[in-house]
Simulated assay, not measured.
Amino acid sequence: MNGPPPIRVGLVGYGLAGAILHAPIIEALPDYRIAAVMTSRAEAGDRRDGPAVVPDIDALLAVEGIDLVVVVTPNELHAAHAEVALRAGKHVVIDKPMAPDVAACDRLIDLASRRGRVLSVYHNRRWDGDFLALRREVEAIGAPALFAACWDRFRPETAAVWRNEPRPGAGLLWDLGPHMIDQAIQLFGWPDAMTTDIATQRAGAGADDYFALTLRHGAMRTTISASTLVAATRPRMALHGTKGSWWTEGLDPVEAALRAGQSPADPGFVRDLPAIPAFRAHTDGERIAAPVLGGDPFAFYRLLSAAIRGEGPPPVDPIDARNVVALIDAAHRGAPLPPPRLPDNAGHG
């Protein structure tokens, strides 16, 4: 018996995120075919499925049979491209952040609900190996007191890219913050309050390149920080509690493998990924190595195909992504933390 036909994808944008982080994962799953790519780069047509290369989203939506539109354009364009696709009756995935505007996020959620389309946001770091391991460690460290997440880089020179320009959705907090904040909220829920420290430290940078947020959950604290001027990086994730500590050093290896040109379609792709250095320490302070495996790079799109076919919810509820945007917006404005929008099953198709 033949299975359902593949989901035909229109990829809107073909920079690093589109060409390296989304397209190879989509192609590695039999449920999908990339039918069209919106880009000026002709080489996009050389991908496995020979997609049409088109200059704008209207041309992409005119390609026959597009089921799903994946938006990977600069952050300030996310909402506009997603709205056009939803109005055309397509399911939509938006690369994080959903949009740099809370009101736009709400409009998209409500529009997807009215149109009966699946809308989700690519918070794929929920399936990183270190985060999956962290979720298993929460009980082992006792009552949590501090969760510290750091994502450091050493890039003293400012690249001439839109993320370093003074424009909506640019800067390090909009770049790395969505993943880190989403992970913290998944672990501990919406915080009671927040304090922020955001700065531009490099000469020539037009947007923030350092941030530190402290989220309060009763007496428990979460600190989330990233910098572009840390050569000796801090632990990536560290959880401390009444029974000890657990921490990791270094990132999940999936993205580095994709950037290096390794194909996720290779049967050994996940198996051959290096382990993530991780450690435990208990009451005697002894450091015990406990490396963890890389995560599941296919989980988001695997769950998405089920949602599109009416077999489950989207991999990331768009309301979760909207609430992350609300937190980042408040941090940038120095405003009090707003209440979250509560789940209402919007965007589940």
Rank of each mutant, 00 (worst) to 15 (best):
H91I: 07
T233W: 04
R259F: 11
T222R: 00
V270N: 07
I276N: 06
P100F: 15
R236S: 07
A184L: 06
A231P: 05
P264D: 09
R47K: 03
A28D: 01
F188R: 08
V93K: 14
L119W: 10
D130M: 08
D56N: 09
G142T: 14
A80Q: 08
A103G: 15
G349S: 09
T233L: 03
Q201E: 12
D67L: 08
Q183I: 02
R202H: 02
I198E: 07
R309I: 12
R302Q: 14
V161Y: 03
G45T: 06
A326Q: 13
W151F: 15
T248S: 15
I328S: 02
D344I: 01
S245T: 11
G89N: 02
A256C: 05
V270I: 13
P297E: 05
D130E: 15
E286Y: 04
P51Y: 09
F147C: 12
R126E: 11
K90N: 02
R309C: 09
G334R: 08
V69Q: 01
I181D: 03
P315A: 06
M180F: 02
R167D: 01
L119M: 05
T200S: 05
G349V: 07
I94T: 14
R155H: 08
G89H: 07
P253R: 07
V118L: 13
A290P: 10
A79P: 04
F300S: 08
A62L: 03
I288T: 03
T39C: 05
P100V: 12
G261Q: 11
A321D: 08
P313N: 09
G285Y: 10
A143L: 15
G244Q: 09
A140M: 13
N2D: 15
P24C: 04
S113C: 15
T196W: 02
G10T: 12
A133N: 06
R114W: 08
C105G: 13
M98E: 11
L187N: 00
L86E: 06
A219K: 11
V37Q: 02
W151M: 11
A212H: 12
A299K: 09
L172V: 01
A321S: 12
M237I: 06
V71C: 04
F300I: 04
